[in-house]
Simulated scan of single mutants.
Amino acid sequence: MKKFFLGLTGALLIATVSLTVRAQNVKYVLDKKIALPGDGGYDYLSIDKVNNRLYVSHGTEVNVIDLATEKLIGTIDGMQGVHGIAFDNKVNKGFISDGRGNAAVAFDLKTLKKIASIPLSNKGADAILYDPFSDKVLTFNGDSKNASIVDPNTLKQTGTIQLSGAPEFAVSDGKGRIYNNLEDKSSLDVIDTKTMKVIKNYPLAPCGGPTGLALDQKNQRLFTVCRENKGMSVIDITTGKVITTIPIGAGVDAVAYDAETKLILVSNGDGTSTVIQQESANAYKTIQTLTTQYRAKTLALDTKTHKIYLSVAEFEKGTRKALPHTFTVLVYKLQ
């Protein structure tokens, strides 16, 4: 029995060491490029895990890619200025924040047909999410410094949440809390989805100008990426304290956390993505600076394949003027 115990201990130790070595040697490489039609600006990418589809915001429309084939299968168009996409699979509906139209646009997740354009009383809808705890869709409105509450069943706005500043990305823990970055205040609001009110506000210094936000549910950690100081800060959500800040590239917009690989993926507008290894809840290190493309600043992570998808266009040299017919999704895989 003692020999068996020692053997088992040794095997577990070897397995742990192997996983650690593999994690340290992991590397993202370019897999392919998916050309998409049309022109215009671009913002969020979102993955509907249930239907295995990638949604890419693009000017006045959303391009939809089947992740099994990685080919374009449809387009949702006719909007004024698209930002984010959220999913309520329980009622088979998706929701798009149409910032310039001051609306949340509902569509069928199977057919991709538009169901309704829901007028919002608040201006500047940007980030959007579905919160399963409250069964509500929320748009985060930069111009109005608030959030609109939409009922996915009645397709009507049911209220407004006053925020502490201009919101950027937001994440839900699915248990009654939503965390929302405030870009102009360099702080983070905590929303109670039972009362639909802000109950706490955490300063994020040294983070300046926070944009993207991701959640590690198990370790109760938030990852917020910040443009002004070019850093990713790790926040303990039980205390609101910043644990550490890791250098990243310039012009960051998005971040994603892969709970299986323990990797944090950060997309920067300077043409890089920073790949950070989570060694423990409080210890992090950069393991790769991936070369992508200028202004490939938003991404989505497929947690099934661990691939990351970044939208981008080509630009006239030295300008931010996109060249026609160059809109593309870059696909990177683990090697």
Rank of each mutant, 00 (worst) to 15 (best):
residue 306 H to K: 14
residue 133 F to K: 12
residue 309 Y to Q: 02
residue 135 D to Q: 15
residue 71 K to M: 11
residue 267 S to K: 01
residue 153 N to W: 00
residue 272 T to C: 05
residue 105 V to E: 12
residue 114 K to F: 05
residue 286 T to R: 09
residue 2 K to A: 14
residue 26 V to E: 15
residue 205 A to I: 09
residue 256 A to H: 09
residue 296 A to Q: 00
residue 149 I to E: 03
residue 165 G to R: 12
residue 24 Q to A: 13
residue 268 N to H: 00
residue 14 I to M: 09
residue 150 V to S: 05
residue 155 L to T: 01
residue 4 F to C: 02
residue 288 Q to H: 09
residue 317 K to D: 11
residue 285 K to H: 15
residue 159 G to A: 07
residue 200 K to T: 01
residue 69 T to R: 13
residue 226 C to K: 01
residue 189 D to F: 08
residue 7 G to K: 09
residue 176 G to A: 04
residue 333 K to H: 15
residue 67 L to Y: 06
residue 145 K to P: 00
residue 54 L to F: 13
residue 192 D to K: 06
residue 118 I to N: 04
residue 59 G to A: 12
residue 64 V to R: 10
residue 234 V to K: 04
residue 310 L to P: 01
residue 43 D to T: 10
residue 177 R to Y: 13
residue 302 D to H: 07
residue 231 G to D: 11
residue 108 D to G: 08
residue 140 F to K: 01
residue 131 D to T: 01
residue 45 L to S: 07
residue 162 Q to L: 05
residue 321 K to C: 00
residue 177 R to L: 10
residue 289 T to A: 09
residue 256 A to D: 13
residue 150 V to T: 06
residue 303 T to Q: 14
residue 78 G to D: 12
residue 124 G to F: 13
residue 40 G to I: 08
residue 84 G to M: 13
residue 322 A to H: 01
residue 92 N to W: 06
residue 143 D to M: 10
residue 59 G to I: 03
residue 265 L to F: 02
residue 102 N to E: 10
residue 223 F to T: 06
residue 166 A to H: 08
residue 105 V to N: 10
residue 179 Y to G: 02
residue 15 A to F: 13
residue 312 V to W: 12
residue 127 A to M: 07
residue 67 L to W: 07
residue 159 G to D: 09
residue 163 L to T: 04
residue 334 L to F: 13
residue 150 V to Y: 06
residue 206 P to K: 10
residue 273 S to G: 11
residue 4 F to Q: 13
residue 305 T to W: 05
residue 95 F to T: 07
residue 97 S to C: 07
residue 141 N to D: 15
residue 256 A to F: 07
residue 227 R to Y: 01
residue 294 Y to E: 05
residue 122 N to P: 00
residue 133 F to R: 03
residue 219 N to I: 04
residue 200 K to N: 12
residue 92 N to H: 15
residue 36 L to C: 11
residue 47 I to P: 11
residue 330 L to S: 14
residue 333 K to Q: 15
residue 50 V to S: 12
residue 80 Q to G: 02
residue 297 K to F: 08
residue 275 V to W: 08
residue 174 G to E: 05
residue 78 G to Q: 13
residue 327 F to N: 11
residue 328 T to E: 14
residue 243 I to L: 13
residue 211 T to A: 11
residue 71 K to Q: 15
residue 37 P to L: 12
residue 201 N to M: 05
residue 56 V to Q: 01
